[in-house]
Amino acid sequence: MKMNRLGRTNIEVSELCLGSMTWGTQNTAEEGHAQIDRALDAGINFIDTAEMYPVNPVSAETVGRTERIIGLWFERDMRRDEVVLATKHSGEGLAIVRDGAPISLQTIPEAVEGSLRRLKTDYIDLYQFHWPNRGSYMFRKNWTYDPSGQLMLDTKQHMDDALGALQDEVSRGTIRSFGLSNESAWGTTKWLEASERTGGPRVASVQNEYSLLCRLYDTDMAEMSVQEEVSLLAFSPLAAGLLTGKYQEGAVPPKSRMTLNDDLGGRKTDRAFDAVSAYLEIAARHDLDPIQMALAWCKSRPFMGSVIFGATTMDQLEVSLGAADLSLGDEVTAEVDAAHRAHPMPY
């Protein structure tokens, strides 16, 4: 498994990352543990989670359950040193965690302690802010995004305060590095400026949605990533399962995400199905598994740190692991680019 450096840190992460957001709803603890075992055997060293997980659905009753499942695995196997572990502070984007309180110097120590307790570990390798206090254009909000209500002085003070609280955690040894999620190019560069101003931890990564169907990252964010050495951690690289082809022609497989989330978080559109057809045709022409093609394309991008994929069955996990050994040729890449131009922004 190829390893990539996480930002400017000395942390090396596998180019594929095991996502965990279904552990505790769609998957049992035992199934989650089996996935970790298999992923580590395949060379993956990177697991991503969040204090709000699991999802499908998110509920007050299940918040924190995924972290607890991972903690039980650490307790069982005593292999903490083999894993680069990432988790996230929710903030005001999720009302059922701390009653929707925004990220602040007061909430950071509490959130870190809660994650450490559930994860049964002394440290978190990558601590991420799940979404900005000022709002985000992610999750289909880009169509109506309006940042005009943001107050620059409030944002600057928040960043300075938050980095101070994070530096305290670094000094305590509870976190090793800091990352963002659902962030913009402007926001990321302001966090980078704040770290220089305050001496707090530098942004190592941004975890944003990225796939053949969702390529918002390809312009300003891509430039920022390359020039500032901030790695992308791509979530939903299979577009919530659309790129597997399993939802084509109106199909809804039993126990699939669409049975729990009918519109797949706003991704289910006629144009999305047309785009998927184009990518499925490319995979078929070149005798490629479409799942592996989609993951291999993501990991080939010049700004990619790691591609986060999830699985609800071991068979799905095995197929995704096959992307580690796949490199796409120039002909496939050219056809992918042509399909993207023909089917831009399908949701």
Rank of each mutant, 00 (worst) to 15 (best):
residue 137 Y to H: 15
residue 311 A to H: 04
residue 311 A to C: 10
residue 221 M to A: 10
residue 289 D to V: 14
residue 122 D to C: 13
residue 47 I to W: 01
residue 295 L to W: 00
residue 10 N to V: 02
residue 223 E to V: 13
residue 182 N to K: 11
residue 15 E to V: 12
residue 183 E to Q: 14
residue 300 S to E: 09
residue 116 L to S: 06
residue 56 N to S: 13
residue 305 G to L: 11
residue 67 E to P: 09
residue 325 D to A: 15
residue 111 A to W: 01
residue 65 R to Q: 11
residue 322 G to E: 02
residue 340 H to S: 10
residue 64 G to M: 04
residue 149 G to C: 13
residue 84 V to A: 03
residue 13 V to Y: 08
residue 239 A to K: 01
residue 38 R to V: 11
residue 109 P to G: 14
residue 146 D to S: 08
residue 89 H to P: 08
residue 212 L to Q: 02
residue 199 G to T: 13
residue 54 P to T: 02
residue 157 Q to N: 11
residue 218 D to I: 06
residue 66 T to I: 01
residue 265 G to C: 07
residue 341 R to P: 06
residue 206 V to Y: 04
residue 54 P to Y: 07
residue 84 V to Y: 06
residue 84 V to W: 02
residue 164 G to V: 05
residue 265 G to S: 09
residue 262 D to A: 13
residue 227 Q to K: 14
residue 32 G to M: 06
residue 142 N to H: 12
residue 19 G to A: 09
residue 80 R to V: 13
residue 71 G to P: 06
residue 192 L to H: 01
residue 323 A to S: 05
residue 172 R to P: 01
residue 217 Y to V: 07
residue 190 K to P: 05
residue 27 N to L: 09
residue 225 S to E: 00
residue 345 M to Y: 15
residue 90 S to T: 12
residue 187 G to C: 03
residue 322 G to K: 01
residue 42 A to T: 06
residue 282 I to K: 04
residue 80 R to D: 05
residue 30 E to S: 10
residue 208 N to M: 08
residue 273 F to Q: 02
residue 67 E to F: 08
residue 10 N to I: 01
residue 309 F to C: 01
residue 321 L to N: 03
residue 307 V to C: 15
residue 327 S to R: 15
residue 109 P to E: 00
residue 111 A to T: 11
residue 274 D to H: 06
residue 64 G to K: 04
residue 240 A to G: 03
residue 7 G to L: 07
residue 214 C to S: 11
residue 22 T to P: 02
residue 203 V to I: 13
residue 108 I to E: 05
residue 85 L to H: 02
residue 106 Q to W: 11
residue 216 L to F: 14
residue 61 E to A: 14
residue 310 G to C: 04
residue 303 F to S: 08
residue 224 M to T: 11
residue 277 S to P: 02
residue 36 I to C: 05
residue 15 E to Q: 15
residue 279 Y to K: 01
residue 70 I to C: 04
residue 231 S to V: 14
residue 265 G to Q: 04
residue 84 V to P: 07
residue 248 Q to F: 06
residue 287 D to F: 11
residue 344 P to Q: 07
residue 89 H to A: 10
residue 219 T to R: 14
residue 35 Q to L: 08
residue 190 K to L: 11
residue 304 M to C: 07
residue 13 V to S: 00
residue 219 T to A: 12
residue 242 L to I: 05
residue 155 T to F: 06
residue 229 E to K: 09
residue 217 Y to G: 10
residue 57 P to L: 07
residue 33 H to Q: 10
residue 297 W to H: 13
residue 109 P to N: 05
residue 214 C to I: 10
residue 55 V to E: 00
residue 105 L to H: 14
residue 62 T to M: 15
residue 174 T to R: 13
residue 238 L to R: 07
residue 340 H to F: 14
residue 93 G to S: 12
residue 254 P to E: 09
residue 114 G to A: 12
residue 276 V to H: 00
residue 286 H to S: 14
residue 344 P to G: 10
residue 155 T to A: 09
residue 347 Y to H: 13
residue 121 T to M: 10
residue 70 I to A: 04
residue 281 E to V: 09
residue 187 G to V: 08
residue 67 E to S: 05
residue 18 L to H: 07
residue 195 S to T: 04
residue 21 M to V: 14
residue 83 V to F: 02
residue 277 S to H: 06
residue 243 L to P: 03
residue 287 D to H: 15
residue 346 P to H: 00
residue 242 L to K: 01
residue 177 S to N: 01
residue 86 A to Q: 12
residue 335 E to R: 13
residue 36 I to S: 00
residue 39 A to P: 02
residue 66 T to C: 10
residue 60 A to R: 15
residue 304 M to R: 10
residue 101 A to D: 06
